[in-house]
């Protein structure tokens, strides 16, 4: 591959690549630039030129309007969901890989069938269920379905990983008299850390960006999560476009931070099991 590239540079490829860079960058450039504009300048200045009088007013307005609360709601929902997803999926995966009974094989098949369920198609019964359980308009209402729909893909990825743990390791631990809890904590957990990291990142992004469940299962601003808050800011600030875009910019900062810290892990988490 190296040699092929050295022969002649691919000018057409580079040009095409550059075109997509422009397509990608312009909206983001516009986003950041506009968020730094004064509200009145937004109507006058060229949207693609830097503001004559840059200001952080828009950001101040957003922060004064409960942005931190929405951010912490999103954090609570994401952390709680991912913690439960990882715990129950790991426990289930240990059983599904090591039990080797007809029951465990049937269970695995049932769970993997769940990969084919489109979340969007179930919103009406989920709404009904949440209302009946008295959980409507609470953070728990967002966490429960998020966990449920995460289980098939999480179990798939973790099962594939646990399967690669050599059987002798399980056998020698059992010979030493270790119980299943101990095997799970001292053997399965440490050896499946890469899979847990992948699943954790993938599901954290899914939950963090989720819009549909918050839209139908919550109402009050006290339980509003970030993606939904962007939509309501748009109604609230209406003509103050710089403020709306400041909120959008702020909402991307946590993921940007994760991207800077662990780009490789984020990329592998994003593509989850699909890359293979």
């Amino acid at each position: 591959m190296r040699r092929r590239i050295r022969e002649t540079p691919n000018a057409l490829g580079a040009l095409g690549g550059l075109v997509w860079v422009v397509v990608t960058i312009v909206p983001i450039y516009y986003l950041v630039l506009t968020s730094l504009r004064r509200q009145q300048d937004y109507y006058i200045e060229n949207p693609l030129l830097p503001p004559a009088d840059p200001t952080l007013d828009a950001y101040r307005l957003v922060l004064e309007n409960d942005f931190v609360r929405y951010l912490s709601n999103s954090l609570i929902v994401t952390v709680a969901s991912v913690a439960v997803i990882l715990t129950v999926s790991l426990m289930a995966s240990y059983y599904l890989v090591r039990a080797g009974t007809p029951l465990s094989r049937g269970t695995l098949r049932l769970v993997l069938l769940g990969l084919a369920i489109p979340v969007q198609a179930t919103i009406i019964p989920v709404y009904y269920l949440i209302v009946r359980l008295g959980l409507y308009d609470s953070l728990v209402a967002l966490i429960l379905p998020a966990i449920a729909f995460a289980i098939p893909i999480s179990v798939l990825i973790i099962v594939n990983f646990v399967r690669d743990i050599p059987a002798e390791l399980f056998e020698s631990m059992r010979a030493d008299g270790a119980g299943h809890g101990r095997i799970l904590l001292a053997l399965v957990l440490p050896l499946s850390r890469p899979a847990l990291l992948t699943v954790g990142i993938y599901q954290a992004l899914q939950v963090w960006n989720g819009f549909l469940f918050p839209l139908i299962l919550t109402q009050s601003s006290s339980v509003r999560v970030l993606p939904l808050s962007l939509w309501t800011y748009q109604g609230q600030f209406a003509v103050n476009v710089p403020a709306v875009l400041a909120a959008v910019t702020l909402s991307a900062l946590p993921v940007l931070a994760a991207f800077v810290v662990g780009r490789r892990q984020l990329v592998s988490g994003l593509t989850a099991g699909f890359g293979k």
Binding site: L96, A99, S104, G114, A121, T122, P125
Partner: peptide, 25 residues
Amino acid sequence: GPPFWLAVPALAFFGLFALLPLGGV
């Protein structure tokens, strides 16, 4: 082998909030 109850929490979430709604719809 590991007991079935290890899979019960995952199955409970999946059954109640994913499978049941699919039938419910």
